[in-house]
Design a protein around this nucleic acid. Structure first.
Lengths: 247, 247
DNA sequence: CGAGGCCTTGAACGTCGTCAAGTGGAGTGG
DNA sequence: CCACTCCACTTGACGACGTTCAAGGCCTCG
């Protein structure tokens, strides 16, 4: 889809450096972190609600999301995850999963036993802190989603999600100028924003008609007017707590 | 309002023991943790969006909430906090506040410098892990709120919030049978559930008419039919990750 | 060429928001 | 002790944003 980008950099390094600086030593440790790599198809569950995982998973390539299916059958997506993310880091400290994790597209995923992660943190306490920091940023993103779904209308709500994805993908170098990969169906978008598929469809048409974004067939979104999109979404990136990038 | 309950126990101890066991040693350390205690009136900000706090705050008595006011003037409440909570623990690792924290009623709050907390964690690494665990549970609660606001209707949504508050207050011993203090106005409830005040009002009337709950003037809620309330709310307490209480 | 996703469209309906007004209790001050 | 004010709660009417149901079009892939 997009060039894997800057091939000689480990996705976890790119991710962590987007939220905190790393030393050469720490980068070296990350590269040699042992993991079992697996290729997964689209729409496959990595972990399920109620599981008690004994390992963490690192997204190496692809896209994943956390979600839950409510008793009534409705689905809510909580977050989207990109290369470098460890979406189930929480399982280190919370035994039982309270939601599921699944792929959105064909993805490459690395599995690391909890024990290995614990040792790694003990050996590199600063990275342990960055892991904690990362889960805190996750929480900040959940809060922003609460506000987004609770207090913004469909148009602004979807615009906001686009802003967030763009900023996050750019932070790890997966953008291509103002374009970025977004292999997310409108039905998934609906489950993420608390809307119906039909309404997402109509709202996306509005966004396109306003000249804010453009979408191509293969799940690539281009932002045509970043200023206007941010304004429409009331987007303030503070909550992403991204590292200021060196000029 | 309610008896401070089991007076000889530190609120932080009660809280932490509701999510993980503590050793005598650790309990002792918590009791001697130095902090500056202050009494705050209702509706006072403890920390504000964009602040860069240098201390953490522990709720000792009272109720607080995290919230954000959106540019358009709408408000979203993200969580409610009760005695024993350290709602801004995240500020240890995230410099800038992306939301505010304020009291709901007259409260007693303890302030602890970041440096003191860091030392404390270094001296008692297991408590450091419990702190991390606590912030992960916060995140789980945010996720549940996303699902609640995104995929449940007003009736179930408010019922769910009642279930959550009851379980959490009971876990720290602040319930009185099926009654618990809930000094939250309907307007605050609206900001927490993404509804309008008017609609919260009508929905509460429905909940009362269905015989699920009862409210008394002074902010006390009584659950009349716990089974039915849970069912109406699709409430599953897994996400609170509470410690099983010894029989 | 057929099947299955995904996107799109139209129409009817419903939950919920907005506006506007009114009630009732708690605290204040004369 | 009685206005008076303030705030939380309540009610009614109306309209809007978004859902549901149902159907059709398009592209991809086997």
């Amino acid at each position: 889809m997009f060039p894997a980008g800057h091939a000689n950099s480990h996705p976890l390094i790119r991710k962590l450096e987007s939220i905190a600086p790393l030393s050469d030593d720490e980068r070296q440790a990350i590269v040699t972190l042992p993991m079992t790599i697996r290729d997964l198809n689209a729409d496959q569950d990595i972990i399920r609600d109620q599981d008690r995982p004994s390992q963490c998973c690192l997204i190496i390539e692809g896209f994943a999301c956390r979600y839950k299916v409510l008793p009534g059958g409705k689905r809510q997506i909580f977050s989207f995850h990109t290369p470098g993310d460890i979406p189930d880091l929480q399982s280190l400290h919370l035994q039982v999963m309270d939601h599921s994790l699944g792929t959105l597209v064909r993805s490459k995923v690395g599995f690391i036993p909890h024990e290995t992660v614990q040792e790694f943190i003990r050996a590199h306490p600063r990275i342990g802190d960055i892991f904690w920091r990362d889960t805190l940023i996750d929480a900040a993103i959940f809060r922003e989603w609460v506000a987004n779904i609770g207090r913004r209308e469909a148009y602004e709500r979807i615009a906001h999600l686009f802003c967030e994805l763009f900023m996050r993908l750019r932070a790890i170098g997966l953008n291509d100028g103002n374009s970025f990969p977004m292999p997310i169906t409108q039905s998934e978008l609906a489950d993420a924003t608390g809307l119906s598929t039909v309404h997402v469809n109509r709202t996306m048409q509005d966004l396109r008609a306003s000249g804010l974004i453009k979408t191509t067939k293969k799940g690539v979104v281009t932002i045509l007017d970043w200023e206007a999109l941010q304004k429409a979404a009331e987007f303030d990136p503070t909550y992403l707590h991204l590292q200021k990038r060196a000029a």
